[in-house]
């Protein structure tokens, strides 16, 4: 039985992800680690309209009967929990960030908040599709050292102690990319306002 307080958390953030246009109707994913278990969205469920029965609880270290119901991306969420201190994962498709990921190996924010919170977001490439072990390992490896990463042409994976934190990094990334895009359109020389900003790319 999943605690109603946990469902409520998923429901709110799922709805927010859709409203913020960070996912399509059936896209994205959320999960949390509960001790030696994972709670994740049911296969095919819509994040923006989660019902209590849309959450599946399954074991972290091996399969049980619930695993067939869980999202196909369970594999990558498990790999993240087994390889990092994360207790929550937010996966979404922030469109501007994805657009930048086509041509960059890392995103280094130029705005204040994302410089502050994220410093740098590595972009990893994996030709295998979502849900394969290859992709799972690559994402988990990158998340050992960064709280949010981009998978090229696909979307972001963010980790936190709570869903709220992981959601925060995700919205912060997309907002930052939108600002950078706007700045590119304005196309005027920058006046640097941050100290030691050249070091962010080494973070």
């Amino acid at each position: 039985m999943i605690d109603p307080r946990i469902y409520e958390m998923f429901r709110e953030i799922g709805e927010d992800l859709f409203t913020a246009q960070l996912i399509s109707s059936h896209g994205g994913n959320l999960s949390i680690r509960l001790g030696d278990r994972v709670i994740i969205k049911r296969r095919g469920a819509q994040l923006g309209r989660l019902k209590p029965h849309d959450l599946i609880e399954t074991r972290l270290d091996k399969n049980d009967s619930n695993v067939v119901l869980a999202s196909t991306e369970l594999l990558v969420h498990r790999a993240i929990y087994l390889n990092t201190p994360a207790l929550a994962v937010c996966h979404c498709h922030p469109r501007t960030a994805v657009a930048f990921s086509f041509s960059r190996d890392e995103l280094v924010p130029i705005d204040n908040e994302a410089s502050y919170l994220l410093k740098k977001i590595p972009v990893v490439t994996e030709e295998f599709a979502s849900g394969t072990p290859q992709m799972a390992n690559k994402v988990a490896e990158a998340l050992k050292n960064y709280k949010i990463i981009m998978l090229r042409g696909h979307g972001s994976f963010a980790t936190g102690q709570t869903l709220d934190e992981a959601f925060h990094w995700s919205t912060c990334l997309e907002e930052s990319c939108q600002m950078e895009l706007a700045a590119k359109i304005i196309n005027e020389p920058f006046i640097e306002y941050r100290g030691m900003s050249g070091s962010y790319s080494q973070f």
């Binding site: 946990i6 509960l34 001790g35 207790l87 936190g160 102690q161 709570t162 709220d164 934190e165």
Partner: peptide, 18 residues
């Protein structure tokens, strides 16, 4: 970073361990 219910029992161990 975020309030979790102090009386909640399920899942507390992961927070404690981290």
């Amino acid at each position: 970073p975020k309030l979790i219910d102090r009386f909640q029992v399920q899942g507390k161990s992961a927070f404690v361990i981290l």
